[in-house]
Simulated scan of single mutants.
Amino acid sequence: MKRSLLALLALVGFNSFAAEGTQFDWGYSKETAPEQWSKIKPEYQTCEGLNQAPINIDQTVSAQLPALKLNYSSKADTIINNQRTVQINFAAGSNLELDHKVFDLKQFHLHSPSEHTIQAKSFAMEMHFVHVTEQGELAVVAVMFEEGQENKKLKQLWKELPKKSGNTVQLKHQDLATAFLPEKLDYYRFNGSLTTPPCSEGVRWIVLKEIQQASKQQIQAFSSLMEHPNNRPVQPTNARLVLE
Rank of each mutant, 00 (worst) to 15 (best):
F24C: 07
S38Q: 08
A53M: 02
A53E: 00
E31M: 09
F17V: 06
L50T: 08
S16N: 12
T60M: 04
K39H: 14
D58I: 10
Y28A: 03
W26L: 03
A18Y: 01
Q23C: 15
A53N: 01
K41L: 11
I40Y: 01
T32W: 06
D25V: 09
F17I: 08
K41S: 15
E48R: 14
Q36Y: 11
D25I: 08
I57G: 00
G49A: 09
L68T: 03
E43A: 11
P66K: 05
L50Q: 12
Y28C: 06
A18C: 10
Q52W: 03
E43L: 15
E35A: 09
D58C: 14
E35I: 09
Y28G: 07
E35T: 05
I40G: 01
W37S: 00
T22F: 15
W37M: 00
Q36I: 04
A63S: 12
L50G: 08
E31V: 13
T60C: 13
A67T: 14
K39Q: 15
A67I: 13
L65K: 05
Q23S: 15
C47L: 02
P42V: 09
I40E: 01
P42T: 07
Q23D: 13
K41F: 09
G27L: 02
Q64V: 07
P66I: 04
W26E: 01
N51D: 06
E43Q: 15
W26G: 00
G21M: 05
Q64T: 13
K30L: 13
T22Q: 14
Q45V: 13
C47M: 02
L50F: 14
F24V: 04
N56I: 02
Q36L: 07
I55R: 00
E31H: 14
F24M: 08
P34F: 03
Q23Y: 10
L68M: 11
Q23R: 14
Q45Y: 11
E20R: 08
E48M: 13
F24S: 06
A18K: 01
Y44W: 10
W26R: 02
Y44S: 05
A63H: 10
P34C: 05
G49D: 03
Q59A: 12
T22S: 13
Q45C: 10
S38E: 07
F24D: 04
P42I: 06
Q64H: 11
D58R: 12
K30D: 15
W26A: 03
T60Q: 03
T32E: 06
T60I: 11
Q52M: 14
T22D: 09
S38R: 04
S16E: 12
I57M: 03
G27N: 03
V61D: 07
D58H: 15
W26V: 03
Q64N: 14
E20N: 07
Q23T: 14
S62T: 09
Y44F: 15
W26K: 02
L65H: 04
I40S: 02
N56R: 05
K30M: 14
G27T: 02
S62Y: 06
E35C: 10
A33K: 06
F17W: 11
C47Y: 00
W37D: 00
I40P: 00
I40D: 01
Q64F: 09
Y28R: 06
F17H: 07
Q52G: 03
V61I: 09
F17D: 03
L65C: 07
G21E: 07
S29K: 10
D25T: 09
F17C: 06
Q64E: 13
A18E: 01
T32V: 14
Y28E: 05
D58A: 12
